[in-house]
Amino acid sequence: MNDATPACWDLLDDQAATVAGMIGQILQKPLRELGPEQARALVDSTPSTDPITPLDHVGQLTVPTRSGTIAARLYRADGTSPDGAAPALVYLHGGGFVLGTLDGADELCRAIAAGSGWTVVSLDYRLSPENPYPAALEDCLDAYAWLIRSAPDLGIDPDRVAVGGDSAGGNLAAALCLHRREEGSALPVAQVLAYPAVDDRFTRASWSDFADAPLLGAADAQWFWEQYVGAGHPGGDPLAAPMRARSLRDLPPALVVTAEVDPIRDDAEAYAQRLRAEGVEVSSTRYTGVFHGFFTEVGVFAQTKAAIDEVCVYLRALA
């Protein structure tokens, strides 16, 4: 590390520090200065022709929503009969509500399906700022409801469906659970939240301690939030920022994964602590030496494999 390197980078392990340096070479400007189109061109993943985790069945879906349709991708674990009734995880990719694609979450979804035996359904919700809040949440709510209705046709058990996501996707997963609780609908059997963006106040210590973290600094994270809700949004809406909910009681059990060097870390861990305090069964793990975004980097970090293994063990215990 040189004198220009932020102090928080000293917490990264060797592999994470190397990757952080590579990201710095690719992103010559902060994401907020690149803007949505250029950031997508630099960051979003392209399809893999040789996946790390091959599966016999990966299928494309078109899911109806109140605003039209969205794309989805279904991953069926090898040895699972399409005529059976497998448990399923609805997965919502990250990307600050602005970035992210089905391809970017592809390796992760493959690994979870293979390791857990669960079917994984990955959703390609609409992105901001072109489609601001609540568009992405509405897509996820509608797609989840459709999946429950269509479960028998998809070889899925409608009584064993969980929801999960990373970063912005973790926000959407948590908000989906809150919305379904409020409307009295059947809840997911669990929520799997990887460094979820759950608060809109940006005041906990990690926002200053890791303001210059790799990939996602504090200023970029707040810029993403403004793209999602709009610069003039008054704040305090629990379906936009789940930590604002008056109560977290009666929500599904949760597995919360965080990264040590991440401005969002303390918000996500506070959400886990509040869930636990309000009677929700919670398992929470902080992965040291890595930064925001590590969970989807299959084959890059040892911590990624450990976190995916933790998710798979957690899901298998639910089945």
Rank of each mutant, 00 (worst) to 15 (best):
R204H: 07
A190P: 02
L248Y: 08
E107Y: 01
G232D: 15
W118G: 07
D199K: 11
R244A: 15
R286F: 02
V19Y: 04
G68S: 11
T62Y: 03
A85G: 05
P253K: 05
T288G: 01
S283T: 14
L154F: 05
R40F: 10
G289L: 08
D3M: 13
D142F: 13
V98L: 12
A86G: 08
Y195M: 07
V229E: 07
I308E: 07
T101E: 10
T304A: 07
A194R: 06
A143T: 13
I70Y: 11
P196A: 13
V189D: 01
R265N: 08
G100P: 04
R316E: 04
L172I: 01
A168L: 08
V58K: 07
A114N: 05
R73C: 02
G217S: 12
P242W: 03
H57A: 14
T304V: 04
Y133Q: 08
L55D: 02
Q222Y: 00
R126M: 10
S284C: 15
G84M: 04
G293C: 04
S45D: 06
V58E: 05
A218D: 08
L154P: 06
G299M: 05
V19I: 15
K305H: 14
G94S: 10
L31N: 14
R265L: 04
V280H: 00
G79I: 04
L27K: 13
V298H: 06
A259P: 14
V121A: 06
A190S: 12
L27N: 13
I156H: 02
G35N: 11
G289I: 07
L89E: 02
D157Y: 08
P36C: 11
V256C: 03
N2D: 15
T304S: 13
R110N: 04
G95C: 11
R276W: 12
R32S: 15
G117E: 03
R76H: 02
M1F: 11
V98P: 12
L187A: 00
G164R: 01
P6A: 08
G100C: 08
M1S: 14
A39G: 15
